[in-house]
Simulated assay, not measured.
Amino acid sequence: MRYLITGTAGFIGFHLAKRLLDDGHFVVGFDGMTPYYDVALKEKRHAILQRSNGFKAVTAMLEDKSALDRAAELAEPDVIVHLAAQAGVRYSLENPRSYVDSNLIGSFNILELARELQPRHLLLASTSSVYGANEKMPFAESDKADEQMTIYAATKKSMELMAHSYAHLFHVPTTAFRFFTVYGPWGRPDMALFKFVDAIRNDRPIEIYGEGRMSRDFTYIDDLVEGIVRLIGVVPSEENRVQSEATIDTLSRNAPFRVVNIGGGQPVELMHFVETIEALVGKPAIRKMLPMQPGDVHRTFADPSLLVALTGFKPDMEVEEGVRRFVEWYQEHY
């Protein structure tokens, strides 16, 4: 098949594009190469993808609709996967406008593109952050999610809402998947695992927020990609509505639209995560314990039952093995 994927120089987009290329598909990658973090890392990811004759890259911002149109002409996509976004919870406190530009205007441009192209399936990356202040655990897709804690989460929930309206009005089959703390090789330098490994190896203190009493439903990158690949083949329709009293399907009654968690449902305490990193790096961290930061939540915990019902798959990588693979990559890369 032919794919248009946004964010292919990013962590998740790189891994998804590589998997699809390895499976024999044609991929056009679209990325803005923004300097939110080291552009050299993004360029190295794209360089790996460009080893394949099945990959073509277009460098431009999501806000540039004409550039998206050029990428679409090159791709002639059967499937569009929209992963590009301004990420980072804490950065949204410093530069909220970048989230509006990328996650709202940029995502609107993707929706307009899908309206014009009518792909077989449009898939959009959302986040567990949309659950915001919810206290019910685990987070199920059918839970109310109207109390986002950051502008980042608010823009992602808004994207979901816009996508539903486009699915309804223009009959674009759409799946929005909510990620839960993705980690692994080639990860972003602003994420906890990368920062902790880098700091410990270089004898710098690590900042542990919430006094270490937080927990996260960590999802290893290969598991996430497997979930996405399987969902690509599950085009939202009444034919695949889940009929189970135990699992509530989010398939809309008014549109070919569905929201799906991609998480394993196994939250890990932050201090266990830190201790695992210390053991694998081979030295203790200099720990700087700090209070909760604005926008943080104490716990994320996915209900993966809908993902399992639709695909037969659930992320199951043990955090110890996932961190080991990241540390090995980091030591080789740096």
Rank of each mutant, 00 (worst) to 15 (best):
Phe14Thr: 03
Ser252Thr: 08
Leu49Ala: 02
Leu21Arg: 00
Ser244Lys: 06
Asn53His: 11
Pro205Ala: 14
Ala47Cys: 06
Arg324Lys: 14
Phe30Thr: 02
Asp296Cys: 03
Glu245Gly: 12
Val308Tyr: 14
Val100Ala: 04
Ser52Tyr: 13
Asn134Thr: 15
Lys288Val: 13
Asp316Gly: 15
Lys283Val: 06
Leu113Cys: 02
Leu290Ser: 09
Val27Phe: 03
Ala17Thr: 00
Glu239Tyr: 10
Ala60Lys: 07
Ala255Gly: 02
Thr174Leu: 12
Glu76Pro: 00
Lys44Trp: 09
Lys314Met: 14
Lys42Ser: 06
Gly132Leu: 09
Gly282Thr: 12
Met191Arg: 10
Ile208Gly: 02
Gln243Ala: 08
Ala246Arg: 15
Val182Glu: 00
Arg324Asn: 09
Glu245Thr: 13
Asp22Asn: 13
Gly88Met: 06
Leu16Asp: 00
Val327Trp: 03
Arg19Cys: 02
Leu62Asn: 01
Tyr334Arg: 09
Glu160Asp: 12
Glu320Leu: 09
Gln266Cys: 12
Met214Ile: 05
Leu74Pro: 01
Gly210Glu: 07
Asn261His: 14
Ala9Asp: 05
Phe273Met: 08
Ser102Glu: 05
Asn240Ser: 12
Arg258His: 07
Ala140Arg: 14
Gly54Lys: 01
Met271Pro: 00
Glu135Asp: 11
Arg324Val: 05
Gly212Lys: 09
Lys18Ser: 08
Lys283Met: 10
Val234Thr: 12
Val235Ile: 15
Ala57Gly: 07
Ala176Val: 15
Phe273Pro: 00
Tyr36Gly: 03
Ile80Phe: 09
Ile105His: 03
Met61Glu: 11
Ala17Cys: 01
Ile208Cys: 04
Glu275Tyr: 14
Val297Asn: 03
Ile277Ala: 04
Arg97His: 07
Val274Gln: 12
Asn109Met: 03
Ala71Glu: 02
Ala114Phe: 07
Val182Ala: 10
Thr59Asn: 08
Met162Phe: 13
Lys283Gly: 03
Ile277His: 04
His168Met: 13
Leu161Ser: 13
Glu94Gly: 05
Pro189Lys: 15
Phe55Trp: 06
Gly264Ser: 08
Leu307His: 04
Glu112Asp: 10
Ala67Thr: 10
Asn134Pro: 00
Tyr37Gly: 04
Arg253Tyr: 11
Glu226Arg: 08
Leu310Ala: 06
Gln243Val: 14
Asp143Leu: 15
Thr8Val: 13
Pro267Asp: 08
Ala140Gln: 14
Ala87Asn: 06
Gly322Gln: 06
Val308Pro: 01
Pro205Thr: 14
Ala71Trp: 03
Leu74Ile: 13
Ala285Trp: 07
Met191Lys: 10
Ala60Met: 10
Thr8Gly: 05
Pro185Met: 14
Ile80Ser: 02
Ala133Phe: 11
Asp249Cys: 12
Trp186Asp: 03
Glu43Ser: 09
Gly263Tyr: 09
Glu160His: 05
Asp64Ser: 08
Val89Tyr: 01
His272Thr: 13
Arg325Ile: 10
Ile206Cys: 04
Tyr36Phe: 15
Ala163Pro: 01
Met137Phe: 15
Tyr131Thr: 09
Ile277Thr: 05
Gly312Leu: 13
Phe55Gln: 00
Phe30Cys: 03
Ser128Pro: 00
Ala153Gly: 07
Ala167Glu: 04
Asp23Asn: 10
Ala125Gln: 07
Leu16Cys: 04
Ala176Arg: 01
Gly7Lys: 02
Arg115Asp: 09
Tyr220Gly: 00
Ala246Leu: 15
Arg97Asn: 06
Gly7His: 01
Asp64Tyr: 10
Val27Cys: 01
Lys136Met: 14
Val28Asn: 00
Leu68Gln: 04
